[in-house]
Design a protein around this nucleic acid. Sequence first.
RNA 1: CGGGGUGUGGCGCAGUUUGGCAGCGCGCGUGGUUUGGGACCAUGAGGUCGGAGGUUCGAAUCCUCUCACCCCGACCA
Length: 573
Amino acid sequence: MRMSNMYMPTLREVPTEAEIPSHQLLLRAGMIRKLVSGVYSYLPLGYRVIRKIEDIVREEMDNIGCQELLMSAIQPRELWEESGRWSDFGPEMFRLKDRHEREFCLGPTHEEYFTDLIKNEVNSYKQLPLYLYQIQTKYRDEKRPRFGVIRAREFIMKDAYSFDKDEEGMKESYKKMWEAYDKIFTRLKLNFRVVEGDSGAMGGSDSHEFMAVADTGEGVIAYCDNCDYAATDEKAKVVYTVESNEAEKEMEKVYTPDVTTIEALEEFFNIGKSKFGKALVYVAAGEPVVVIIPGDRELNETKLVNYLGIPEHELAMADESVIEEISNAKKGFTGPVGLKDGIRVLVDSRITKMKNLIVGGNETDYHIKNVNYGRDFEGEVVEDLLLVEEGDICPKCGKPLKMDRGIEVGNIFQLGIKYSESLNAKFLDENGKEKPFIMGSYGIGVSRTLAAIVEQHHDENGIIWPLVVAPYHVVITVVNSKNEEQSQVGEKLYKELKDAGIEVLLDDRKERAGVKFNDRDLIGIPIRITVGKKAGENIVEYSLRKDNEKEEIAVEEVLERIKEEFNKEGIKL
RNA sequence: CGGGGUGUGGCGCAGUUUGGCAGCGCGCGUGGUUUGGGACCAUGAGGUCGGAGGUUCGAAUCCUCUCACCCCGACCA
């Protein structure tokens, strides 16, 4: 491609809307443009990268016998009613009506659609396992779109589904997908970590997330250096021991005017946070719920939602009127003792082992000392409602956990029979018995992966694309396009490389050298050929975007050097 | 959804406090001089000041409503 003819609107200045490097650079490099919040276009350069990511995904999917198809983004309400997710998905789902008032959604994912598709055509265990996938646009009306294409409302996703005859088969399929994902993200040069995830709105049991390590990532992961334990903060099991052998003391009401936070209580009582029982008031599916956890810990809302068995959007922190209503006191004085009758109380299991707690008194300006579970209050004891913290002990090996951040680029779920059961998708097994398909679903955020790669591969001058996904492999910069010798050498090389099957850009624009250099660094082309002063002597400059070391070589050597670089990267031409 | 902020030419911004000709830098057109890391001179084009209503002789500026976008929290590929 001749750059004089290319649609590549690079920006000199950083658009104010962009906060993180990948968003800024993708905009500046002219790879993406925003239409409205969370909705983006992929411009020619960006789209080439998207297609290369897709191709790698396709190869690895095809390798494990997963077959590509393409479905509609638009799906009828009835399909989602069958699985119960028309309401479970909540406001996250884009909904629309046709001229006959029939309701539809723009697919946020396709479990129902895939299950529905195959259920009439696949009737026998002999046809299993079956793996299908598509690469398609998904829609989720995110609460807060952010970071460019990392959290968009429209995004490109590869979604795959496995159908097995039994649990073991499904686990085998899950393993295959996992291995394929490992290969995909490795080929894409991402530094990633596989962690246990929460299955959330997808349902099912086991799930893992593929997290591209990045400080700017929204996902928080807890991991162990000593063993292979790693999980998202939502999922990570909190091991927290507070055995106390103190003798139970007499309950005592204490006047604590305006002391409403754990920090203030700490100061008031001059005692550590762990002596307090923190009461959090939520409204879950319309009903108030009080949750009691140790004062020095945070609540994990995902665990709470899972315990309650409600969709996430039906859980919210209670506002002050609800708090006053159930505790008969201002916010900050809620506790487990003396709540209004009939209020549901959940107690983190750790609370039951703590002695002589200090809790809110359910009376404005009062707390109660020496409160003990079992003697003074009761509730539903929940094993673990806490959010993991750095330094918590690893549930697997007991060493301290570390925390990291990442961008979730892939996710695999063991769904089981959630969808096959509700959609009545069944086959006949060896004994002629009807059984629901055992399913798995597997996503890769293609557009998000684009951003994740930039997040991990850039410097102050711009993007540094790995050769496998670079929009073009090579850029030939003709330093002075008015110079006849330089132009000729540039043209000759351009033709030679193109004929060799290399994707090459020729910067033949009538710009000053500085502009060309800055643009090529910004858009991150991995291999750079500079045709300059020594063009007449048949010498050009060869350098790589990633290390910047320049070398003068003869024009005849160029193709060979490029081939060497492809070999080094393990890429076939 | 809660909290905070911003909307002025393609991009980045000033002007708003205290109402009085709509400006600056970059980019863009033309002519010229330059030409190895975002050139210089000259000369141009380009604006419903987010929108609606109001106050006023007069509104980018004051008031009311509204829309959009960004940031911080709760969700996800």
